[in-house]
Structure formats: structure tokens, C-alpha cells
């Protein structure tokens, strides 16, 4: 563990608390992509199956359980409690365009041909693109509530902070995980446009609006 990974994980935690706070205080999941949230449940469940087979640390176990539980809770909020505020007609990204290629990539790039490794690899690839339905929705509506942009910023910062973590681990432990690094760079790259608007508008006190 190093500070980059630790703050990355904290940022990830913060993003989830911000999202739950947004939904429960505004009593609305308007502006949030259900598809992206469903993909995160898939990512966490397929990656953290090893909860039952290998123990890393108490920190690791608690975080894994939290990510699975909180992502399921968000689906519950969107699908049951605040269902009327969820508008599927603007959440139109086709999931098969994401899931299909991730299955293929996992079959080609993995650290072993067994179910655990294949699902782990699949989850890494899927996580890297899981935000696309959300970003696509943002692009379509052209604007976002400020709290939603804070959620996205925290979520983007999480994987961005993993990059210095990997550099640090390479030099301190000789640890290299090419699958995570490649997918992590892609994942962070997808946020660049968003971050540009976030830093130049939202953090200057303006509303998040995309040029028409």
C-alpha cells in the first residue's frame, strides 16, 4: 500500500458516498445512468469472487464487501425507491458494444485460463469502459447537476491515482500488471474531456454545460 493507491481508494469511496447523497437528498436519480451503475455491480461481483478463496488483508476484504454492497444498494435506489425519477429513454448506450469486446479481450489477455483469472481480467476491461453510458448520457443532455459532476470527478480521480501507484510499485517492488495498467490508462483517458470542463467551469463556480 502506498499513498497513491490509498487516496485512490478513498476517492473511490467518496464517489459512492457522493452519489448516494445526491440520490437520497434530491430524492431523484435524474442524470445518473442506470446502465453504468449496473456495469459497476458486474465489475465488482466478477472481480471480488476471490473474497471466498483468498485473503489479502482486513482493509482489502472490508473494501470489497463495501463496493459490492454499495453498488447493489445504488441499483436498488434507482430501480425501486426512486424508480419514477429514472428516465431510461436518455440512457440509450448499447451495453453489448461494451460487454462483447471485454469478453473477447479477457479471453486473449489474462493471467491464466481458469474462471477466476478470466473473470478478473474481464472485470478490469469492463471497469475501464463502464463509465461510457454515463458520459454518453451527459453528452446527450449537455448539462449536469453540480453534485453529479463531483461524483464523476471523484470516480475519475480514483483510477488516475492508481497510475502513480503502479509507477511507484514498479520501482519499489518490481511489480508490473500490464492488464491493469493498460486498462487503467484507457479508463483515465475517457475522463479527460470531462475533467477539462470540470476544472474550467464547475470549480470556477459555473454550471456544468457542454457547448451545443
Amino acid at each position: 500500500m502506498n499513498i497513491f493507491r490509498f487516496f485512490g481508494d478513498l476517492s473511490h469511496l467518496a464517489s459512492i458516498f457522493i452519489l448516494i447523497h445526491k440520490i437520497t437528498t434530491t430524492r431523484s436519480c435524474r442524470g445518473i445512468s442506470f446502465k453504468t451503475q449496473a456495469l459497476y455491480v458486474t465489475v465488482f461481483v466478477t472481480r471480488y469472487l476471490d473474497l471466498f478463496t483468498s485473503y489479502v488483508s482486513l482493509y482489502n476484504t472490508v473494501m470489497k464487501i463495501f463496493f459490492i454492497a454499495s453498488s447493489c444498494y445504488i441499483l436498488y435506489l434507482m430501480r425501486v425507491r426512486y424508480r419514477p425519477t429514472n428516465d431510461p429513454s436518455i440512457d440509450t448506450f448499447r451495453l453489448e458494444y461494451l460487454v462483447g469486446p471485454c469478453v473477447v479481450l479477457a479471453l486473449i489477455f489474462n493471467y491464466g485460463y481458469n474462471p477466476t483469472e478470466l473473470l478478473w481480467s474481464f472485470s478490469i476491461f469492463l471497469e475501464s469502459v463502464a463509465i461510457l453510458p454515463q458520459l454518453f448520457m451527459l453528452q446527450r443532455t449537455g448539462e449536469a447537476e453540480t453534485i453529479t459532476t463531483h461524483y464523476l470527478a471523484a470516480l475519475g480521480a480514483y483510477r488516475a491515482l492508481y497510475i502513480p501507484n503502479w509507477i511507484y510499485r514498479y520501482f519499489s517492488e518490481g511489480y508490473v500488471d500490464p492488464i491493469s495498467v493498460t486498462a487503467g490508462l484507457v479508463q483515465t483517458g475517457l475522463y479527460l474531456d470531462f475533467f477539462y470542463v470540470y476544472f474550467t467551469k464547475v470549480l470556477q463556480g459555473q454550471k456544468f454545460e457542454l457547448p451545443a
Binding site: 493507491r5 481508494d9 473511490h12 476471490d50 483468498s54 489479502v56 488483508s57 482489502n60 473494501m63 470489497k64 463496493f67 489477455f109 489474462n110 493471467y111 491464466g112 485460463y113 483469472e117 478478473w120 492508481y162 501507484n165 511489480y175 500488471d177 491493469s180
Partner: peptide
């Protein structure tokens, strides 16, 4: 590519 890495990251 058959050597499994330790999965200690989240």
C-alpha cells in the same frame, strides 16, 4: 501468460 499475479489491488 500463465503466471497469476497476486490480486492485492481493488
Amino acid at each position: 501468460s500463465e503466471s497469476s499475479l497476486p490480486k492485492d489491488e481493488l
